[in-house]
């Protein structure tokens, strides 16, 4: 291939990639070969590389939730928090120690028996900054956004319960 031909190809590749397999047979045979090769390569993944991938996944899931919150009865904040801690630590008590809170307080937040205090959220923010520093971009406000999305949902979902009581105390005097 001449240099000019090669240059033309490089200019063209980015505008048109047709990556479809020509037949199901080809697709299947490529899939089998690819899986075998991947399993070999995966054997060489270090623990650190696996943790990095899990943390990237967690970040992407949290971003998705913030952009498109799904209002269900799950407590996503504590679910995400559990994944975060369990990815990084073998025992949750070690995380509690690292952010200087009692293991009981952490357990209460994780199990939705207590709301996270502002100080907890701030420490979690700083902890995440340190963890993600050398892994990928991480928006520092992420945990707060998760928490307040859920708070908002919880308030709006229970509007019928609290609104009549609250309304008794509210008037608009011109």
């Amino acid at each position: 291939m001449t240099k000019k031909e090669n240059k033309n190809i490089t200019e063209d590749v980015e505008f048109g990639l047709d990556s479809r397999y020509s037949s199901n047979k080809e697709k299947q045979s490529e899939a089998t070969a690819l899986m075998e090769a991947r399993l070999e390569r995966m054997k060489n993944l270090s623990k650190d590389q696996i943790i990095r991938a899990k943390l990237m996944q967690l970040r992407l899931k949290m971003e998705d939730y913030i952009q498109h919150p799904v209002y269900e009865k799950h407590n996503y904040f504590s679910e995400f928090l559990k994944i975060y801690i369990d990815t990084l630590y073998t025992k949750r008590i070690h995380f509690a120690h690292d952010i200087d809170i009692t293991p009981i307080r952490l357990s209460q937040v994780i199990n939705n028996h207590r709301e996270p205090k502002d100080e907890f959220l701030k420490r979690l923010m700083v902890h995440s900054e340190k963890v993600y520093e050398n892994i990928c971009e991480f928006q520092e406000e992420t945990w707060y956004q998760l928490y307040f999305h859920e708070k908002l949902y919880s308030i709006m979902a229970r509007k019928k319960e609290w609104k009549p009581k609250v309304a008794k105390h509210v008037k608009y005097s011109k």
Binding site: E30, L34, K54, M56, Q57
Partner: peptide, 19 residues
């Protein structure tokens, strides 16, 4: 791919040989 499969994630394509 990473969002769905974390450490197992794989992105693939099948380009023409010349590209």
């Amino acid at each position: 791919a990473v969002r769905d499969y974390a450490e197992f994630a794989c992105l693939s394509l099948r380009p023409k040989t010349e590209i």
